[in-house]
């Protein structure tokens, strides 16, 4: 026992140990290592749990407050501050589901988001394949140009977009918003998919071609199933960025294809803001996100790094 403590003190970095002593020193450390780490681990484990809880509370507090208000009447909201609904009501939600202007906002938003996801993934898949497998004239410049579109601030394009879609007669249609969102969603999809595709060995392509597969058949039957989780993650991102964008969606629509986010501005009227309905509408915009993230939760861990770890 005495011996082991002595050698442990000798293992302090910076101290010179005689060659012959080095081996027993390491042996004692290894045998001691387990209990030492276990003892040290427990407090840091609880601490990290506590810190994690603090962060989760920070994330959830504003959402809790929104939820809380969505179940209150406006008189309760504007009266004394209450931490949970004293006079529980579903009236705010009933308002939304009984008014076509309101619920059509959700239908419109979901319509153009789905359209955008479909268009983006269809054109991004072959393009990403080309970037990951072939060298061709201007490939690097093209890739950088694509990424710059990801960075183009929508505010820069507002007026030209309005004029362009008005001229081609697409103003106030779902497809207009879906196409406009392609500006940033296609480059994003190409970028993410390229990462996933590059991690698939090239030999698979070559073997398939030798086996007599045509390119389209190989692509659909073999290649796409191989990057399934990559496609899942890509769709998640496409949904996310199309769903949360408002500026372009609002500029390109007036009544027929108005997104929910822009319908929400109706809550502020001359008689003040209808807080209850605003909160209920906000809660309803969060729900599709929860559904989507629930489906991809197992892929997020791996896929969020966009195939680049």
């Amino acid at each position: 026992m005495n011996d082991s403590t002595r050698s442990a003190t000798q293992a302090v970095p910076g101290q010179v140990t005689v060659e012959g002593q080095a081996k027993p020193v390491q042996a004692t450390i290894q045998s001691q290592a387990k209990p030492v780490i276990k003892v040290a681990k427990r407090p840091s484990h609880t601490r990290s749990r506590v810190l994690m809880m603090v962060y989760i509370v920070f994330v959830m507090l504003p959402i809790y407050w929104l939820l809380n208000m969505s179940f209150q009447t406006n008189s309760e909201i504007l009266g004394e501050l209450t931490f949970w609904p004293q006079d529980f009501t579903l009236e705010n939600y009933a308002n939304i589901f009984s008014d076509a202007n309101w619920y059509m906002g959700y239908v419109n938003s979901i319509t153009y988001v789905l359209m955008n996801m479909l268009i983006s993934i269809m054109v991004a898949l072959p393009a990403a394949y080309a970037f990951s497998r072939y060298q061709f004239i201007g490939d690097k410049h093209l890739f950088f140009w694509l990424l710059t579109n990801l960075m183009a601030p929508p505010a820069v394009f507002l007026l030209p977009y309005f004029q362009l879609y008005y001229t081609v007669g697409l103003f106030d249609t779902h497809i207009a918003v879906a196409l406009a969102h392609c500006l940033f969603n296609i480059p994003l999809a190409v970028w993410i998919l390229e990462g996933f595709m590059s991690s698939v060995p090239k030999e698979i392509d070559e073997t398939a071609f030798i086996d007599g597969y045509s390119f389209p058949k190989f692509f659909v039957k073999i290649f796409i199933p191989m990057i399934r989780s990559g496609i899942g993650v890509t769709l998640f991102f496409l949904f996310m960025f199309s769903w949360v964008e408002l500026l372009l969606a609002r500029t390109l629509t007036s009544t027929n294809a108005q997104p929910i986010a822009s319908v929400m501005t109706r809550t502020s009227t001359a008689s003040g803001i209808d807080w209850g309905t605003l909160a209920a509408a906000g809660v309803l915009t969060i729900l599709p996100g929860i559904v989507v993230v629930y489906f991809v939760r197992n892929h997020i861990a791996k896929g969020f790094a966009l195939g680049r770890t």
Binding site: V59, I63, W65, M240, V244, I286, V292, V293
Partner: peptide, 22 residues
């Protein structure tokens, strides 16, 4: 994972509204 991801999936103007209310 789901709780942490949540804020990313809220439309941007709704994020503004949530914090306005908060």
């Amino acid at each position: 994972l789901i709780l942490v991801t949540l804020p990313l999936l809220i439309p941007w103007n709704v994020v503004g509204s949530i914090w306005q209310i908060f």
